[in-house]
Nucleic acid binder design. Structure first.
Lengths: 190, 190
DNA sequence: TTTGGAAATGAATATTTATTCACTTAACTT
DNA sequence: AAGTTAAGTGAATAAATATTCATTTCCAAA
């Protein structure tokens, strides 16, 4: 018998990502996903129950992927600021290299498609970062401020910087990235 | 003869806002807009050519409204930092009091509905803020950094703070707002 | 108070889009 | 190499949704 091609699931998800980025979630059609992924519409339904199911899987898939990227080169033996800086640059690099994702996760988050339990599950992925911020506060290196405020400040500024530069076709030079990091560090340091 | 009710246009726009916020742009249906606005579907087509037209009008409408709010109590006779702080608090207050807008503008921005010329027009509305930032740099009060970077940093962090707190049903106390402003000021000051 | 005309209505229609399913193809098993 | 079974296909169908339009309601002028 013919066996399921395991790569297809991710092919479909990535094709969907491209389309949402190009045309928005509101313009997403199953027939277009099939075309973009070079397969028949029917095939989509072999891998995912329906459109809603596909979108929930996609949300989790990219949240997990982004968290993996974020954790690159983080080494808890290093001093706090070294790790903080690495994390910040990882986040920015991911947002810059994958401008589609931020847009996508944003749009999905406020759509009738996403199931609440999937949203809750992704929030748990942030725990290691919360722990890291707590450690920074314990060492009195960063301001003793609410974690949600810190997280919102960090993620909001990074995403928006990546988005605006991408939208205007501008490159974020290493110098600009350094300037942006300095702003962030000045903002959070004690 | 019966005359056109001028308020209806804004009634429709506001009803649409509510719905996009509740169900996302992807879930937006003309029939629901009509229900939310307590009128018949056909009436929508008296005030707007079609769905796309309605959404473009709505985008401009709220961009303009938010800029008006932002300019409240700004007085160019005041010192730079006073105005900067007022502007920042105006922006945060608007984002907190109108959590729907940010979500909506975000979603619309990346949709097949929005016409490019409408996007370009809204970008021009930011010019007074760019001028203000330039003035701060001239007085050597803020870092001499790219305006787009500064704007992205400011708007991204504020929007995300307002959004996350609203999403988690948490109130942003005056103390937290002060802390957030201090972070921002530390970030931008020379 | 009558009447002309635009606003408002919402069931009917047109259009778009998700999903199914009868059929074909490919890979594995014996 | 024949048989078996699941993957893959895409035209056909179902479902959802935008838009129209024949009819009714309302207002203002005559």
């Amino acid at each position: 018998m013919k066996s399921k091609d395991e790569q297809k699931e991710s092919t479909i998800i990535r094709a969907t990502l491209q389309l949402i980025f190009r045309e928005g979630l509101a313009g997403l059609k199953m027939s277009n996903i099939a075309k973009q992924a070079s397969m028949a519409v029917g095939t989509l339904y072999i891998y995912f129950k329906n459109k809603e199911d596909l979108l929930n899987h996609l949300f989790l898939y990219f949240k997990r992927e982004s968290m993996t990227q974020l954790a690159q080169k983080i080494d808890f033996a290093q001093p706090f600021k070294v790790n903080f800086k690495q994390l910040w640059h990882n986040y920015l690099a991911y947002a810059v290299d994958n401008p589609e994702q931020a847009t996508l996760l944003e749009q999905l988050h406020y759509s009738p498609y996403l199931r609440p339990e999937v949203v809750a599950e992704t929030d748990k992925l942030l725990q290691p970062i919360r722990d890291m911020l707590d450690e920074g506060k314990r060492q009195m290196l960063i301001k003793n401020t609410d974690n949600e405020l810190l997280l919102a400040f960090l993620s909001g500024s990074i995403n928006q910087i990546a988005r605006r530069f991408h939208e205007n076709d501008r490159k974020l030079s290493p110098e600009l990235r350094e300037q942006a990091f300095d702003m962030t560090w000045d903002a959070v340091r004690a």
